[in-house]
């Protein structure tokens, strides 16, 4: 550890800045989980697996077509939207409102299928993308910010903004919120709740797919990342408040920063101690805040 306190503070600030940028992408990933839970009360245990599918699709677009993940992102998100829509319609819909352990087992089976399909197709090796700005950086005061992280964070923020517009300004978005607030009421006024649920799952899947494409700029993909991302998404939405959109983004930033700072203060292998410690504290100390969101 450096003896110079000024240098140490700078290192810490640098870590915080990096953590905030990565945290935006985490936030987008968690947003998908939160949207799905907030509307359908279904806990998507295959979330990290869907993230990894998004990463692989973006890698495929890069490897075969030479497309930058930022360019292929809309297509990746669209593919996951279709996947989520169809999955909800065919497999998940009958399980809405059933006990949590049944949903857990169902989505666990989906998760096993997804992660092993990735393993069978792409193998266990890691794959990454090499974009021509991968070594660029921006100097902000004394801080040096990686260009890839800055772009990823900005795009994540943009998508979160679009999602907010969708939920507040469009008919479908408002209808989804109505169905989330009052299921029976939505049925009474003649909303097609089944279609809305499928739409929601599609939107949630598109979010996590987009987050996957962005994440591929920062890390390399391999199938076994999936379970870590599932856990991470859970930690983030619980810390931020399950079912709350702004909570998911805030939670993402918080976890991103805590991981980065833990990486500086502790050994890198201890970095998730902070996140899990935070999760335990939030679960225990602010349960009323968390439970207040449950219907």
């Amino acid at each position: 550890m450096s003896a110079d306190p000024g240098q140490f503070v700078l290192t810490l600030l640098q870590a915080v800045a990096m953590g905030l940028l990565t945290g935006m992408v985490y936030g987008l990933m968690a947003l998908g989980l939160s949207v799905i839970f907030g509307v359908m009360r279904v806990v998507n245990f295959a979330h990290g697996e869907m993230m990894v599918v998004g990463m692989y699709l973006a890698w495929l677009a890069f490897d075969r077509l030479g497309l930058d993940p930022l360019v292929s992102l809309p297509a990746v998100a669209a593919a996951l939207f279709v996947f989520g829509y169809v999955l909800q319609r065919t497999v998940i819909n009958p399980f809405i409102g059933l006990p949590e352990h049944m949903q857990f087992m169902l989505l666990l089976a989906v998760a096993i299928l997804l992660v092993n399909a990735c393993l069978a197709i792409f193998g266990p090796d890691t794959h990454g993308v090499q974009v021509d700005y991968m070594f660029d950086s921006f100097n902000v005061g004394p801080l040096v910010l990686d260009a890839v992280r800055v772009y990823a964070a900005l795009v994540a923020l943009l998508i979160a903004g679009l999602l907010w517009l969708f939920f507040t300004r469009t008919r479908s978005g408002k209808a989804i919120r109505a169905a989330a607030d009052n299921h029976v009421g939505a049925l009474v006024v003649g909303l097609d709740v089944k279609r809305l649920y499928a739409l929601t799952f599609g939107v949630g899947a598109a979010c996590v797919g987009a987050a996957g494409a962005l994440m591929l700029l920062i890390v390399q993909v391999h199938p076994f990342l999936a379970i870590d991302y599932t856990l991470l998404a859970f930690v983030i939405v619980i810390v931020g408040g399950l079912g709350s959109m702004s909570g998911a983004l805030a939670g993402g930033l918080l976890i991103g920063v805590s991981e980065a700072v833990a990486g500086v203060l502790l050994q890198p292998s201890l970095k998730s101690v902070f996140s899990f410690g935070l999760l335990i504290l939030v679960l225990l100390l602010r349960p009323q805040g968390l439970l207040a969101r449950r219907s």
Binding site: M105, A109, I112, L113, V115, N116, C118, L119, A120
Partner: peptide
Amino acid sequence: KAAGLKQIGYGIALLLIVM
């Protein structure tokens, strides 16, 4: 030959049983 084939079969079986 592909890694994960066994688990895919397992996953399908699990899915069907749960459904």
